[in-house]
Design a protein around this nucleic acid. Structure first.
Lengths: 162, 162
DNA sequence: GTAAAACCTCAAGTAATATTGAGGTCAATA
DNA sequence: TATTGACCTCAATATTACTTGAGGTTTTAC
């Protein structure tokens, strides 16, 4: 009997506004497979607690975390790095806008670098691809990350092939 | 005795200007592991012929092909797609500048889309990451490829996460 | 002419990012 | 209450892009 066993101050005990979510609900709302949520949890990107029957329950915060994971992934950031970034969020309390902003600031730099690299690549693509320089080490197309390389470890995934 | 067994019109038989290259020479010049060259060959991205002793020999054209492979990979294009693009190059003769330009034109569009996507992502990152919309399907940060989606199959690797 | 360096094949291993399946439990509903 | 759907764990499989290693051959260099 949903709603009866709940003791919240609000009159609300149904799915729509209940605080905790099942894995299936999170999967549907975030458009991520249940297996992927299990996987993220095993990698420490999200967390849950268990019911007496050993089923996972998530706080609604997880929706934003999953959204961040997907957005970050679409820029090419590997899960390990996303995990590290998410680990900087406060433990226990729901992150504030400031917390999220701090997290995004680091990624923004990498994004800038990646955009710069791709832009240079694009601009040189037509010029270099047909000329003789491409097969040489000195070709600018082959060294698009000259400046980015100086940024150190943070930019490592920007150099996909080398 | 290098140079003696060669019958070229030119006086050149040494490594520097010999037409054919061993796998080790290609590896060194292109900064790619021998094992990777074998792998590319097994996947049909490059080709070679064999000596009487069953060793691979490459035409110098392979250097440019390998360079293209690395450049394309750095933009996120998977090997299967690179293979398809390289397959459009003329069979038998050395590709001309025009051949290469045609090949790069297709990639340029994808690159443009990818740059656009990342740019939008960057510009929306700070705005959306702290606000409530991120966990909703309608968040612009979660749908950066609205226009790109219309481009069809060619843009498929641009959507890394969805 | 012999020893080292380079090459060969084929199978297995690695890493990231998941999905699929088997075998079994829990919970909501007719 | 019985059944069905949702959930559980753990192992295996899939894909991409290679690398590593074993066991053997060829080429090059002294």
């Amino acid at each position: 009997m949903p709603g009866t066993s709940e003791k919240k101050a609000s009159s609300c005990g149904d799915k729509k506004c209940r605080r905790e979510m099942t894995v299936g609900e999170v999967a549907e709302r975030s458009d991520v497979a249940v297996s992927a949520l299990h996987f993220y949890e095993s990698k420490g990107l999200i967390s849950s607690w268990r019911t007496s029957g050993n089923q996972r329950r998530y706080s609604r915060d997880v929706l934003r975390r999953v959204a961040i994971i997907k957005v970050a992934q679409s820029t090419g950031i590997p899960l390990a790095e996303i995990r590290e970034a998410l680990a900087t969020l406060p433990d226990g309390r729901t992150p504030t806008a400031k917390d999220w902003a701090k997290l995004s600031a680091g990624w923004r730099e990498e994004l800038d670098q990646r955009i710069l690299q791709l832009t240079q690549l694009r601009d040189r693509l037509e010029g270099c691809i047909g000329c003789g320089c491409l097969s040489m080490q000195s070709c600018p197309l082959r060294n698009p990350g000259d400046q980015a390389a100086e940024l150190g470890a943070g930019a490592r995934y920007l150099d996909v092939g080398s």
